[in-house]
């Protein structure tokens, strides 16, 4: 019994990590007042860029260096995600386009680009079907050497690749940044009330650009984790599924607090796969169980709306463009 629960916990953590990346990235973005609904697309791009970078290196014929096997996909992933975020910023911050429309377009675009390159890469390989970057996957799945010797504890907590631990560290750092530093406070002010921030001498545009790009890069790592560690260096079309939207739901569940989304991500991850652990479910009832994270999010929304605590509300100017010379 204990073992089953422990293994379930491990699976929940594994499922939760892409969500944690996505929600940390989105929280940082939303704190600047940008509602980036392009996050699901950016996570796809983060994944496929990593795959492309990894593919170019692993199949370049050079002798494979384990450090580069990690670094090259990591950098390509970040470049891909930041490029997507920059598109979002130019459209919404500089050109003041509608944030919802821009975000949704980016998601559609990102999923499409991901599947397109995912598909063509495998046809370049001449194999058809899925691409497999075995060496890169191995590098990403590298665990601590002594993890195996620690029994159940090692199995549940130490059996992950470095991106898993990095997700938690990044979430904690993001919380500290937002709540304890001067720059974090400035960023929150931009998301709450850009006119006030502007009058206080804070550069609203720069804050929005930087927060959105950094947030996008972090979210993209969730896609990278998925393709490299979870899947082990392979791309399947639409394999990432709706995890991007789940990450955005997690932002609401965590009440815009990255440290809360650490536990939230494990909960969401658990709820996402709980159907596997309930015997005798038909295909259709499985789908009902997969809704659970969204149901929980709606409950959280209802509870926070009823309680009306101002700290638990989204940033006040979330989704709004900022015009300075408005009278």
């Amino acid at each position: 019994m204990i073992t089953t629960i422990a293994l379930f916990l491990k699976q929940a953590i594994i499922q939760g990590i892409p969500l944690l990346y996505g929600s940390t990235g989105e929280i940082i973005t939303e704190k600047s007042g940008n509602l980036n609904l392009g996050i699901p697309g950016i996570m796809y791009i983060g994944g496929i860029s990593g795959i492309i970078g990894g593919y170019l290196y692993e199949f370049s014929g050079a002798e494979l260096n384990p450090v580069l096997l990690v670094l090259i996909p990591l950098l390509s992933s970040i470049i891909g995600s930041v490029a997507m975020s920059l598109i979002y910023c130019v459209l919404t911050v500089t050109l003041k386009a509608n944030q919802n429309v821009t975000g949704l377009a980016l998601t559609t675009f990102g999923v499409g680009v991901g599947n397109f390159f995912g598909g063509s890469l495998s046809s370049i390989l001449g194999e058809g079907g899925t691409i497999s970057l075995i060496e890169t996957g191995k590098a990403y799945k590298q665990t601590l050497p002594f993890a195996q010797d620690l029994g159940l504890f090692g199995e549940v907590f130490l059996s992950f690749g470095f991106l898993a631990y990095a997700s938690i560290i990044i979430a904690i750092l993001a919380s500290i940044f937002l709540n304890k530093t001067r720059k974090g406070m400035n960023l929150r002010a931009v998301g709450e009330n850009p006119a006030t921030a502007d009058a206080a001498g804070i550069n609203v545009t720069a804050n929005k650009y930087i927060a959105t790009c950094v947030g996008g890069a972090i979210a993209g790592l969730g896609g990278l984790y998925f393709v490299m560690d979870y899947v082990g260096g392979a791309w399947t079309n639409n394999g990432f599924g709706d995890r991007g939207w789940l990450a955005i739901a997690l932002v609401i569940f965590a009440l815009w607090r990255p440290h809360t989304s650490i536990l939230g991500s494990i909960l969401f991850g658990g709820l996402y796969i709980v159907y596997l652990y309930i015997p005798g479910l038909s295909r259709s009832s499985q789908e009902i169980f997969k809704m659970l994270p969204y149901v929980v999010t709606i409950l959280v929304l209802i509870i926070t709306s009823v309680r009306k605590k101002r700290e638990h509300q989204p940033p006040q100017s979330l989704g709004l463009s900022y015009f300075r010379e408005e009278r």
Partner: peptide, 27 residues
Amino acid sequence: IHQHFKLVDIFTAAENIALGINDGKKF
């Protein structure tokens, strides 16, 4: 001091007063 106050509602008074100032000292 503007007619429509330029304050962040969910910040404390101290945070609002400190907003945007970088005096080079630790925050």
